[in-house]
Every structure is written in structure tokens, then in C-alpha cells.
Computed example of a mutant assay.
Amino acid sequence: MINEFWKGVNQFNQEEFYACHDTFEALWMESVEPQKKFYQGILQIAVACYHLGNLNWRGTVILLGEGIGRLRDYQPIHESIDVTELITQSTDLLKMLQEVGAEQVADVVQQLTTTSIDSISEVGSGRIRRLPKITRVNPDL
């Protein structure tokens, strides 16, 4: 199960959100609390990012909110993951999407796919760098 977890994290960070969904869904279905809710939170943020790629503003906003909510109790760090940072990045994306609305979702996706990580793009007044990433706190573990 541990190897599958890190496989899912790598898929998430490589923006392979559909594959990440499959990996985390399998983990989620086989797990018990407290892990079940943790896996579901990551899964929902991955699916939100997948929806964003398909210009599904409503699905993105709903699942970002649900994923963020499920991960809050796991802060600051859980399973060697910086949960606080994942929540911060996801919340920033959610707020920006709520601000620009469904009408500008294509602009958001275009900015996210054409912007280097070192630069900042402006969409509306929202500042975005990239899609959320999962940060491993203790990579040697």
C-alpha cells in the first residue's frame, strides 16, 4: 500500500490526474479511518484538477472545496506530506476560480499550461503559478 501511495503522489505531481484518481480510489476503498478520509481528500483535489483540464468549472470548484475540507484535520504533516502546503495551494486555486467565474475557466487553463513555474500569471486579479503539488517533507524516509 505504501508503494501505491507514492505512485499516486508522483502521478499527482506529474499532472496525471486520471491515473492518480485510479490509484487513490483503490487506496481509499481498501483503507479504514483515519487514512480513508486522507486518501479521499487527495483524490478529490486530483479529480478537481482533472475537471479543470476539461474546463468543468463547477466540478473543479466543488471538488476542490470538498478535498480541502477533508484534509484540514491532517495538518500540518501527515504521511510525510506537507498537508498545509497542499491545502494552501488548493485554496489559492479555488479562490481564484471563484473570483473569475466559469466564464474565464479557459483563460485559467491556458495560463496554467503556458506559464513557467518561476513566473506569475494574472487572470482577473488572481495570481496563479501552477496546479497544486504534493510536497514530501522527509524524502529520505
Score class of each variant (00 low, 15 high):
T113G: 02
I42E: 11
G124P: 13
I120Y: 10
E15G: 03
V108M: 12
G69T: 12
T23Y: 01
T115C: 13
R129H: 14
I77W: 01
D82A: 11
L112H: 06
A106S: 15
P132Q: 06
Q14V: 03
L27N: 09
Q14H: 06
E66L: 14
D140E: 12
V61Y: 00
F38D: 05
D92M: 14
D82Q: 11
Q98I: 04
I128Y: 02
I2G: 09
N13G: 11
V109P: 03
L55N: 14
V100A: 10
Y18M: 09
M1G: 12
I45K: 00
G8F: 04
R58H: 10
D118W: 13
R72C: 07
V100R: 10
S121W: 02
Q35P: 01
T135F: 02
E15F: 14
V47M: 00
Q110G: 04
G41I: 01
A19V: 08
D92S: 13
T135V: 06
Q11T: 00
R130F: 09
R72I: 06
V137H: 02
V100N: 09
L131D: 00
Q111S: 15
N13F: 07
D22P: 04
I68Y: 03
Q40Y: 10
L97A: 04
P139V: 08
L64E: 12
T23M: 02
I120N: 06
M29G: 07
L64V: 06
G126L: 06
G124Q: 08
E66N: 04
G59K: 03
F12D: 06
A19F: 11
V100M: 10
K133S: 05
W28Y: 11
H21S: 13
V108L: 06
E103I: 05
T113D: 07
T91W: 01
I62H: 08
